[in-house]
Design a protein around this nucleic acid. Structure first.
Length: 203
DNA sequence: GTCGCGATTTGCT
DNA sequence: GCAAATCGCGACA
């Protein structure tokens, strides 16, 4: 059940490769209250890089993007839309920016055996109790930590689907979203509309 | 099923 | 001031 944690070397590489290879890996979350843990399989990811306009690090190592230039293998958790957290792992060697956003997980083991809603970046953070206050910049390669990424199942290349990213308004043509073919644990498709609605809001 | 919209923090202009 | 790597709910088909 419990697998070995991935090393920082795994994350200190090209972000696209890391995003793709993280599919099938396990995310282990300790449940302190129960003295137990939750294991989830990573089923959907997105890549964000230093020269990507949609990435928080695009404007340099300031503000919220500063974390992305730090050590590979640490967590980057940010708050968005006033309600939700998004959970990423930092990639590329230190002083170079990159991150992989976790969009969906498949619960492999939970203390209660209950299904959790881990479809979608906001929902998976809520399901696992991930917050910026508790988890931002923690080391995800530490098997003794509250949260770490471990070896998991191997996913063959032909079972990996590559598509455009979701929920962004720039660089929408980058096919940097990856998910496991035929796996039901995938975030739902949003309605394709957006944008213009904002204009309509103006009185 | 699809579509619109509100919730409400954060950081950049 | 405003848009953002989102989600749930209510209206309508």
């Amino acid at each position: 059940m419990m697998k070995k944690a991935l090393s920082a070397d795994f994350f200190a590489r090209n972000t696209l490769n890391v995003a793709k290879e993280l599919l099938g890996k396990h995310l282990v979350c300790r449940d302190e209250a129960r003295g137990d843990f939750i294991v989830c399989k990573i089923t959907e990811t997105e890549a964000y890089t230093e020269d990507d306009p949609a990435c928080h690090a695009f404007k340099g190592a300031k503000g919220r993007g500063a974390t992305l230039f730090k050590k590979p293998g640490i967590a980057y958790v940010y708050f968005i839309y006033g309600m939700y957290y998004c959970f990423n792992v930092v990639t590329e060697p230190e002083h170079h920016a990159g991150a992989v956003l976790f969009r969906s997980l498949e619960p492999v083991y939970t203390p209660t055996g209950l299904e959790m809603n881990t479809r979608g970046p906001g929902r998976l953070c809520k399901a696992l109790g991930i917050t910026k206050e508790l988890h931002n910049e923690i080391d995800l390669t530490d098997e003794n930590g509250v949260l770490y990424i471990a070896e998991g199942d191997t996913v063959e290349d032909e079972n990996i689907v590559k598509t455009a990213r979701i929920g962004i308004s720039v660089a929408t043509d980058y096919p940097w979203r990856f998910y496991i073919f035929n796996n039901p644990w995938i975030s739902v498709k949003p309605s394709i509309k957006k944008k213009q609605r904002v204009k309509l809001k103006q009185k």
